[in-house]
Design a protein around this nucleic acid. Structure first.
Lengths: 144, 144
DNA sequence: GTATTTGTAGCAAAAATTGTTACAAATACT
DNA sequence: AGTATTTGTAACAATTTTTGCTACAAATAC
């Protein structure tokens, strides 16, 4: 259904920052873990920064860190920071406006879209970044 | 978040079939309402057919119709018929396996993916195709 | 047999997503 | 003040996904 990995990468990045603690983490370092280009990471961090989840600094001692402890960051905030609110896309071409269904189905679908987005946020609100870190830790143990 | 309009089109198409009642509706007719190519519609109908939601016939009196009345078709079935079960995409590139978080974050994200998919289905299960048709009707009235 | 429609393959076009290069602005340190 | 380093961002390229189209065999009804 979804084609973008923004949310997945965002959680990954935030997990790294969480592990980094109070220290600034550089986009270059994050990029290596995610296996992508630093600019891609910085673009994503820009979204997270606007959502007041992280803060960045330039310069030699620069980088990015969380503004709140991991147990106070819920995943619905992360989702909201990177998502368009469109769980599924609407018609790419405008439906036939001479057809009564074509003319009115979009409004109905938009409402549905909103409702689904709400339950997703509710579900994601059940988890904090700390929970994610713990789950990752658990995986590490299992894989030994 | 999502780039595909498969689900939106599917609901649109099924609404048309529902309005069509017991009659066969041709892909050409549906395509005109959706404003796309008949082949696109037939491909989608193929998915819905495999999910046992519709049945098609070739020939001059051919076309497609619902196999069950609209009040017995729930939207989660439609969703399942056209979706990949991936609300958000995972990493496109494999994360760095030498990083503990990179190595284990994907499993955690997959579990999250599954959980979110479940709440989406639960929400969609609250609505039938009949509900959608009624909502569209309501829109038609409001727009007069 | 003829006309019509679905099912599907194969390819083209368009759109979305990600990756890359380049560089100004900011910051810390000497 | 000058230097080294890093973020922020623009502009563009490459890739991937999604949609649209042409063509035609198979199925069906008349």
């Amino acid at each position: 259904m979804a084609a973008t990995s923004q949310f997945a990468i965002a959680v990954h990045v935030l997990a790294l920052l969480a592990k980094g603690g109070e220290e600034n983490v550089k986009s270059d370092c994050v990029a290596k873990s995610v296996n992508t280009n630093p600019v891609v990471i910085r673009r994503l961090l820009c979204n997270l920064s606007q959502a007041k989840l992280v803060v960045s600094q330039t310069g030699g001692a620069g980088g990015t860190r969380l503004v709140r402890p991991p147990e106070e960051i819920r995943l619905n905030e992360v989702y909201r920071a990177v998502s368009s609110g469109e769980v599924f896309a609407l018609h790419r071409q405008m439906p036939n406006q001479n057809c009564l269904i074509g003319k009115n189905i979009q409004t109905v679908l938009e409402n549905l879209q909103t409702e689904i987005d709400e339950v997703i946020e509710q579900k994601l609100a059940e988890y904090t970044l700390k929970n994610i870190l713990d789950s990752v830790e658990q995986e590490i143990i299992l894989n030994c």
